[in-house]
Design a protein around this nucleic acid. Structure first.
Lengths: 211, 211, 211, 211
DNA sequence: AATGAATGAGTTTTCATTCAT
DNA sequence: GATGAATGAAAACTCATTCAT
């Protein structure tokens, strides 16, 4: 289970580590969003977090650790909030609700999503691997829901199509943060959710799930 | 028309500029793909391009110019190849062909697409603007095709839905390069194209375009 | 009063800034004298000052800052030592003493004077302005002394002539460092002072101040 | 006699050399005045002179050669124009005329004088030597005139004082270009000449030369 | 635990000079 | 003789990381 990639700290007090790292993550997200990972300096992160550069390095070992911590924390939150959902397993409404909550989450955490997807490529190999696993887990959440609907015959969907469909849900959501420049002018988040949901359901079975 | 953002060169011979910049772009794409824009040094770009650092700077003014040149050249090629298509304007087959060619293009230029979307955020303000315009133009190509289909009644599609649908085509294509890790194992490009096309057509009108 | 042009430092400890900058100024003067501002590298300055290039840049922001610091420190010292003089205001002897001390100062700080006058043209606009103001203040010191003598009738001197006369004192002093190659072989500093003083006093009123 | 420091050229045609070098000197003075020797590039000099960088190097060997050529040409012109004077040898009026012409010359060639005095320190050793010799020759012109006056008893002046007096004439003239910021607002060149001449003559003998 | 001064490898960029055409 | 593309050494400056206090 302890497959979590550990970040070394020279401080012992776990709750302090947690506290300081949260400060650090808050600051880092704000800065990464503004200027990207590479243009942000460790000094700036420390300052934004509210402590000194020396202290920063008491809680991490490299700058990339900060990026990892950021990505990890975002995935953690997303998963947490997504799995906390009251699942009406195997129903179309359950699926719609999940999609809805996911898209609202993205809307709420736009900055975090941007940072996560734009900067994760700068992670060291092993951290990238770990983050990719997290992404797959997120896809899997939707795969499971879709699978359940398929099994309960709420959805006419071939076994093979499930995975691609799950990717679709995830990617369609990302559109909202990535193509902000092209979409936010024309659509509210609610309109976006509705259109995407209809589009998706029709897309996978040809009748909008209304049959 | 001449709205192109110019990159200064101290060399006068236009054809030489063209030649050297192409070398530079080739080299840069390869490197950016591997290590990203920020981790690639100008010296490496020069070396990869086959000339000295001094020569590199005879053809550009800043490192960001290289990135701009790269992005611009990719968009240029994509647009060129997409608009060169024999359009059966206003027919479903014409639309399918366009999508097909676009997705094949992405498959062929995967590296370039990755670089373009991952690194363009590092462009200076004005270059970013220019590149965004290019992206919008690409979306517009599909908007036009969809619009034509709508007008010829080949497609039951509301006016409002056209833009979002065009974004969909573009984003669905990007999936192939962005989510390589999740898709290439399970699908060939042909399968991907078929599934995406069906999905898209069903998605926008609910019957897979077979009615 | 706080019209001083500030040089940014990322170090907070004021006394340390002061100490390090002094080291830096010492080293820089020595190097600038030898090879001029442009032929001196920041690395050399750091080395001469006794610390690393990184440390140098903790205390300044640009190479020009070093030059400014050098010029400023020289003016500061000159003014300090000149205004510290026990003034016998409005007497010829007071004037002579002031001139004498100024010329001795120049003799003592020949290198600094050379650097200051030869290199200040390389200062950025605002710093140049500031330094020019300092130079005018130096001229003003002598204007005041001359004015006092004029008012006490120790000196027959028209109002208009005061300013030019003050410039004369300053320029005649500079001769000692600038035309070293032409003067030091033939004159001691004492002889120089005497001759210049006589020359000056006769020059401005025609009788060497002996009437 | 051929003590002139030669500048190598790979071009044979002497008159062409002369022509090109003049172009080069004109351009260089303008640029050096504006931005100083070090901030001016050889490319800029070539461009300003009206030919290519390759051509520039057909007529000189190093950038410093340009500076030398500039300094030399200025001294040459000054000496030429000063020695061309109809000398009323040994008379006070002759001296006054010489001073007058020298100061007018400075006023006319302010830029050149500035460049010469500000930048000559960047000359290579041997060129600096040569230029210093030239400066001494200029001083010597006035030494000779003063000496003649002394011998004809037009001037009561000790043998020793002659040299310093000559330096004075030269330096007082330089004031006009160097302290432009402090003098040109208050004085016309004519007023300056008059005051300086009176000051000088009184200075060296105490009665303004009117006795 | 916290601090922040010190370090120096590494980066972009410039520019005098050369040399093939 | 003229041109200008090519070169690469050298310069200013940055910043992740360390470590003494």
């Amino acid at each position: 289970m302890k497959s979590k990639r550990e970040v070394q700290s020279s401080v012992k007090d776990e709750s302090l580590i947690s506290k300081r790292r949260n400060q650090m993550i808050q600051g880092a997200v704000a800065l990464f969003k503004q200027k990207g990972f590479h243009r942000t300096t460790t000094r700036e992160i420390a300052k934004e977090a509210g402590f000194s550069i020396g202290t920063l390095y008491e809680y991490i070992r490299t700058k990339e650790d900060v990026l990892y911590l950021v990505c990890d924390s975002i995935y953690e939150e997303v998963q947490e909030r997504l799995t906390a959902l009251p699942t009406q397993a195997g129903t179309l409404d359950g699926l719609k609700t999940a999609i809805r909550h996911y898209y609202l989450l993205i809307d709420e955490m736009q900055d975090e999503f941007m940072v996560m997807y734009q900067e994760s490529k700068s992670l060291p190999k092993d951290a990238l691997q770990y983050v990719l696993k997290k992404e797959l887990e997120m896809v899997a959440i939707f795969e499971d829901i879709l699978q359940a609907c398929r099994k309960s015959s709420e959805l006419q969907l071939s076994e093979d199509a499930v995975k691609l469909a799950a990717h679709h849900i995830v990617v369609q959501g990302q559109m909202w943060s990535f193509r902000r420049w092209g979409l936010h002018r024309d659509l509210t988040i609610e309109q976006f959710i509705n259109q995407q949901t209809t589009f998706f359901l029709q897309g996978i079975q040809g009748n909008g799930g209304k049959a």
